[in-house]
Every structure is written in C-alpha cells, then in structure tokens.
Design a binder for these strands. Structure first.
Length: 754
DNA sequence: GAGTTTGAAACT
DNA sequence: CAGTTTCAAACTC
C-alpha cells in the first residue's frame, strides 16, 4: 500500500498560505456514518492560517458561514509538548509544537482562520463567540490534541495510535458524542493532499483504519494538481497487538466526519474519528515499534512506546502515539480523558511545559512555516510564518476571561507586568500582523527571556516594534531590551494583552503612535464600516499591497496600507483574497510537475508588446511565455528571432554596463591608489611633499611671484641671464615657502604670497 | 518631465 | 466569460 509520499515539502513554500482540502478519507464505519465532506464554500480569509481542531462531537458543520465560526471546547485538556526534530538529510528543522496542558478550551475562528487556543471560561463567552458567527460549541472531554507538522518532503508521517484504554465497563457507542474516551486530535499543517489514516497492527503492518479513537484535523493545502505531489498522512494505530496485549479486541466503530475545504484560506478540514468502543490494550513497557518508512526504506524508525502507567491500569492508560515524520518520530503519550495529554518527541521528553509551542511546517530551506502558539496558560499569541508567502503573522489572541482554571505557566513562562488590564470585548480578540518576510524568518525557537517577557525568538536582526494586541494606549512598557521576534504573552490576570514584535520595515509606520491599536473582534466587525474597498488605496494596483507589504516611502496618496489602518487593510486583504485566493501568491512560480523552469502562474495577456517588453510580466520576469499565456503575437518563445535578438542586445548592453562599471571601478581604484602613494609624509625632517599642497591658489601665487620677479628684472634692465636667475631664485623661494607650509601641514596661499 | 502606451486588475 | 474601466508602470519624446 502506498502510504507514504516521498515528496512532502516541495509544495510548501509558495502554497502554505493555503489551508486547503484534505482528501476525504474513506472509512468503513460500522455505524454507517459516512465520512462527510464539508462543502468547499468557506470564505477565504487572508493572511490567516487555520489550525483547525476537531472535536469528538463537533466540527465545523457550518463551514459555509463566512462569519466567525467558533469551536469552543470547554473541558478539553490538551497538552502537547513542543518538539523539534531535524531532518537528517536536509537538516531541515521541523518543530512540532504541542499544546501544553490546555486546560482551557480552544476556539476556532473559521472566519478569520484562526485557531484560538484559548480559554473560554464562561459559557457566556462561548455564547458570545457563537453569536459572532456560526459557532460550534464542542464539548470535549479528555480530548487530546496533537499538532504536528508536515514539513518534510518525501517523508512519511505516521501517527501510530495504539488502542486506548477505556474505562472498564464503559460501553460507548458511536453516537455517544460525549464520550469520555480519550481521543486524539491530530492537527496537521501543511500541504498534504492526502491523509490516510491507517491502522497499524502491532506487527507494524499498516492496514486501513477501521476503528480508532482518533480525530484528525488537518490544515492541508490543496496544491495544484499539476504540481502537488501526493502527500499522505498516515495515522496508524496499533490494533490487535497480540504481542502486546492479549486483551486486544477491536470494536471498529467510527463516528466521525471529515470536514473538507478547498479554499486555501478556508477553515481547516476536520476529520473526526471516534471510537466509542475502546479496547483495553496497553503497550508493553519499553516496547519498541518499528515504523516502516515505506517509501523511504532507507530510513528505519524505531519508536519507543511508552509504557502504560502502572498506577492506572484501566482508567489511566498511557497510550503511545507515534508520529513519524520520516525519520522523525513523535511519541505521544495519551492518558485518560481526565489527564492532560502530553505529546513529545523522543528527543524532547522534558519539554512538556513550554511557554510557546511552535509548529513548523515546511522546511525546504529550514525557514518555512512556523507557528508559535504560546499556550502555557494563556495562549494568546500565535506567530505564524508562512513559507513562500510574504506574510507572517503574529496572532494575538485575547482570552475572553481570565480563566481560573488556567494552570500556572511553566518556568519559562513570564508575562508583562506592566500590561495593565484593559477593556476586553466579548469574544476573542484576534489580530494578524505581517511581521517579517518569509525569507528573513529563519528559525523560531523558544527562548527564555531575561526580562519579564515571554519570548519567542526568531533569528532576525531586524528592528522590531511591539504592538499591543488590543487597544491599550496607556501602556507603554519598556521593551527596548527585548530581542527581535519577541512575542509577549499577557500576564495571567493582567488583562488580555498580547504583544507582538514587528520588523523594522513596519516600524516607521508606528512612529507616530507608539502603539497601534489593533482591532479586537468587535472592532474588526465594526471596522466593516468601510463602505467600499474602492475608497481605499488598498487595491491591486499598489505593488506594496499586492506584495503583502506595507507602503513605505512610496508615493501613495491617502494611503491606508499601513498599520494605522490595519483594520481596513485586513479587510482589503480579505476582499482581495475573496476575489482571488491567489492574489498574494507570487506570479512566477514553478511550472508543471517535472518542469524545472519558472513560469507565470496565470500567463500574460499581452496584445501589442509582443511579450518582448516589460509590459509583459513573463518577459519582465525573464521567462518565456507558456501555453497558459493568452498573449497575441507572442514573440517571447524559445525560437523567436526577435527574442534572440533582443536578448543578444540586452546581453551586449549588460556587458557594456559591466565593462563600464569595471572601468570605473578600476579607475577609482587607481586614483585611490595614487592618492595613497602620494600621501604626505609630514615630518619635521622633511619628506616628500604632497602635490595636493600645490593647490591652484599656490600655483597662482607662485606664478605671480615669478612674474613679479620678471618685471623687476625687466624694469632694472637686467640681462636675460640675470633675469632668468632672478626668476629661478624667486621660484626657489616659493618652493621653500611651499615646503615650509607643507611641513606645518598648512596650505596657506598667503604664506607664499610675495 | 510630460505625455503616451501598455497590460494587469478591478469592475460590470 | 467577455467587455469596459481604472490604474500604475513602462516607454517615448
């Protein structure tokens, strides 16, 4: 069975912005429940990367709603440890972030394509969230969320879920949506076009998923069929592991749904697979399960499976979940529903409390997709970096209430003491801010901060400015010492304030107001008062905007493409993406699969230029027109003589320019060298005088002196020889004066005046 | 630098 | 989907 795609990451950089459809996973379900696919009608929301979360009983049933769809879990206990693995081949660092002890519910905003791993402590807040759009309130109990990254091409991703240990005597049916059964939620982020959960036996055989207590949420990017390599997400579960447990008995009952969406910016698809009937299988302590790399036979991954908790033989069973990212294995220990689930790789077993989780997807160049989810107690900030996209986001999430259920943050968790409480609107406050070009974000790693701030540091050198996530004009803490890329989480109980550090390129726009008020959810809704987008200079005509950048030092008039009008800007972006989901994607991308050459994503439509002028986007990009171009009279093809001639001329011109540049450089170098060699060696003992001392004034003065001497000789009727002698003598005097002046480091014409 | 040409994007 | 409009960059003089 082809369960692993060798290409995993090739499609990520340019396309990770999209959270597109995942394949519907055919599951044979005993209860007859078929996997449902949500209509692909969700409104695309710009600059957002969803992190969908499924629940056992809820999912985005109203995926068509353009409004906010909030999925709120009130009882879920989530804990995923940030893990980081490194691809041994490419060195790509893939960080699998986890959710840390999320005693808090989480909220998914379908409209803004944000997952708010946040606390919604009160039902009112939930209701408020519901009222905000088309919410989904999910009661989750004992739910486990696994956020994993699909970031490496050619590497299989295997989630191996052993049987969960259910409570003795607890019979669960497929319709029991409030099952206490622990469940896995697998959140994948990446351009997976396929998701194939399979059930793996203890003998490492991978079979079709029959019955799992598994929930899979995948933020998959539906890549163009032409270029998207099939990526298969494999979720395996050890079933009927005779060697592990004689009690293995599988009750393949799956009650699940698959929420699919194809829009790049749609809310995430949710695959919910529940297994009401749980077996009491436990893993043998220390048992190692080898996960076949399948298509990567050279890679053999052995996963250490955690042993069940001895103290909880039945009700608290430690269940291993092994996630293999190629050679990377993510081992997940699942406890009972009442216990937090901690997901950790074998490499990072003691990172169960991280102030910030990081989800890294992609990794072609090691600097691709990173999502920072600070979740220690108040997961208010998500930093997302989208590979290939020029957008990177710091997602500022404000909890509706300061939940008392929040666990104390980890040792590395800190807050901003100066963050004052602020007026918090009902519902989550979200904000996405492009923070850094994709090329500059190299790595995101949790980093302790010496100050009071919780920090996620991206290895950036750009200057940044901190912005409050919510209107907070009165707060101006001193963040000058914060490192770049800092994301500050609000202090528990100190108000719902999140801070994001933005790159220097946006700082200039913030200099007028030190802190820019970022729209809250309510404010964002209210900001819809912008009548028409046409009134805004935020349109496709502006290259800055089209490039996903703020305007800076351009000639815009009445420009709204700045942080001061972030709300309008976001709305404009949303409008553009609604109109064209590809609006902010690079026009020049890879060609079809197998084609190495670049090509225009849409093709040009030139009519008069013959595609041989810079009017043509293909020609401008120095690529030839392709079959998708709709140009008329195209001459921008391989054998075109006009093109060859033009290229020849262009090359010749370029050569000339290079030659001229080289000549100028050489001349400049020579002049500089000459100046260096003629640098005066001024010393009391003499030395070579610089000719620079013989200025024009000096020469003129000297000449005047000589002429004056000549006049004297003439007036006194001196013989010519005597006249010459007098002149030479005067010249000698002049030279002496020049030398004297040079010795004093003075160039004073007056000193040699006669 | 002003005016013209051009084609992409928006708009209808 | 096609035609029109708007716009800014490219180009020409």
């Amino acid at each position: 069975m082809d369960v692993v795609s060798p290409e995993l990451n090739s499609l990520l950089p340019d396309e990770i912005m999209d959270t597109e459809a995942i394949e519907d996973i055919p599951h044979s379900q005993s209860d007859g429940t078929t996997v449902q696919s949500e209509p692909d009608e969700d409104t695309s929301v710009p600059m957002e990367t969803d992190t969908p979360v499924a629940s056992e009983s809820g999912f985005c049933s109203d995926a068509t709603s353009a409004a906010q769809s909030l999925i709120t879990s009130t009882d879920s206990t989530l804990s995923i440890t940030t893990t980081k693995t490194t691809d041994s081949v490419t060195g790509t660092s893939i960080t699998t972030s986890g959710l840390q002890k999320l005693s808090a519910p989480f909220t998914i905003s379908a409209a803004n394509h944000q997952i708010i791993l946040n606390k919604v402590a009160s039902s009112q807040a939930t209701e408020a969230a519901k009222s905000a759009g088309s919410p989904q309130v999910i009661k989750q109990e004992g739910q486990k969320l696994l956020v994993t990254a699909i970031g490496k091409s050619g590497q299989p991703i295997v989630l191996q879920l052993p049987h969960t240990g259910s409570k003795a005597g607890v019979a669960q049916t497929s319709g029991d949506t409030k099952s206490q059964t622990p469940q896995f939620k697998v959140v994948t982020i990446g351009g997976r076009s396929e998701l194939k959960p399979v059930v793996g036996s203890s003998t490492n055989q991978v079979t079709t998923l029959q019955a799992q207590q598994l929930k899979t949420v995948q933020i998959a990017k539906k890549t163009p069929a032409s270029s998207a390599a099939p990526i298969k997400f494999i979720i395996t579960k050890t079933v009927n592991s005779k060697g592990l447990s004689p009690q293995s008995s599988v009750s393949p009952v799956i009650a699940g749904r698959v929420l699919t969406q194809n829009s790049p910016v749609m809310p995430a698809r949710t695959i919910t697979l529940t297994e009401p009937h749980n077996t009491s299988i436990q893993s043998i302590p220390g048992k190692k399960i080898a996960i076949s790399p399948l298509k990567t036979p050279s890679k053999v991954t052995v996963v250490s499976v955690a042993s069940p908790t001895p103290s909880a033989p039945q009700k608290s069973v430690t269940l291993p979940v092994n996630v293999a990212l190629g050679q990377q294995i993510l081992t997940v220990q699942q406890s009972t529903s009442a216990s937090p689930v901690k997901v950790a790789t074998s490499q990072t077993t003691a990172q169960n409390i991280k102030p910030v989780q990081s989800v890294t997807v992609g990794g072609v160049s090691g600097s691709q997709f990173k999502t920072i989810i600070p979740l220690a107690t108040q997961p208010n900030v998500q930093q997302i970096q989208v590979p290939g996209s020029r957008f990177h986001y710091v997602r500022l999430v404000t909890a509706t209430t300061a939940s008392s259920t929040g666990q104390p943050s980890g040792p590395s968790t800190s807050s901003i003491p100066t963050a004052k409480p602020m007026v918090v609107s009902t519902g989550a406050v979200r904000m996405s801010v492009p923070i850094v070009p994709a090329q500059t974000m190299k790595q995101v790693a949790p980093k302790p901060l010496t100050s009071t701030a919780q920090v996620v540091t991206a290895t950036q050198t750009q200057q940044r400015l901190i912005m409050p996530a919510t209107p907070l004009p009165q707060i101006q803490p001193n963040f000058t010492n914060l490192p770049p890329g800092t994301v500050l989480a609000p202090a528990p109980g100190a108000g719902n304030v999140g801070y994001a550090v933005v790159p220097a390129q946006y700082v200039t726009q913030l200099q007028q107001p030190p802190f820019v008020t970022l729209a809250s959810s309510s404010g964002f809704q209210a900001s819809a008062g912008i009548q028409t987008q046409a009134r805004l200079p935020l349109n496709g005509y502006c290259d800055c905007f089209a490039n996903g950048e703020f305007c800076n030092n351009c000639n815009c008039n009445n420009c709204f493409n700045n942080l001061e009008h972030e709300t309008e800007r976001l709305k404009a972006i949303k409008t553009c993406l609604d109109r064209n989901p590809e609006a902010f994607k690079p026009k020049i991308g890879k060609g079809k699969e197998g084609e190495s050459d670049r090509r225009h994503s849409k093709g040009c439509n030139c009519k008069r230029s013959g595609c041989l002028k810079n009017y043509c986007e293909c020609y401008e990009a120095k690529i030839m027109c392709s079959s998708i171009c709709k140009c008329i009279g195209c001459k921008n093809f391989e054998e075109s003589p006009e093109r060859k001639t033009l290229m020849h001329l262009a090359d010749a011109a370029e050569v000339r320019v290079q030659q001229q540049t080289a000549a100028k450089t050489k001349l400049s170098s020579q002049i500089s060298d000459l100046l260096m060699r003629t640098t005066p060696v001024i010393s009391s003992g003499g030395g070579r005088l610089p000719y620079t001392f013989v200025t024009k004034e000096v020469l003129e003065a000297t000449c005047e002196c000589l002429l004056e001497q000549a006049k004297r000789a003439e007036q006194t009727h001196q013989p010519q020889a005597e006249a010459e002698r007098m002149i030479l003598e005067e010249f000698g005097h002049c030279l002496m004066r020049i030398i004297s002046s040079a010795g004093k480091a003075k160039v004073d014409c007056a000193s040699i005046n006669c």
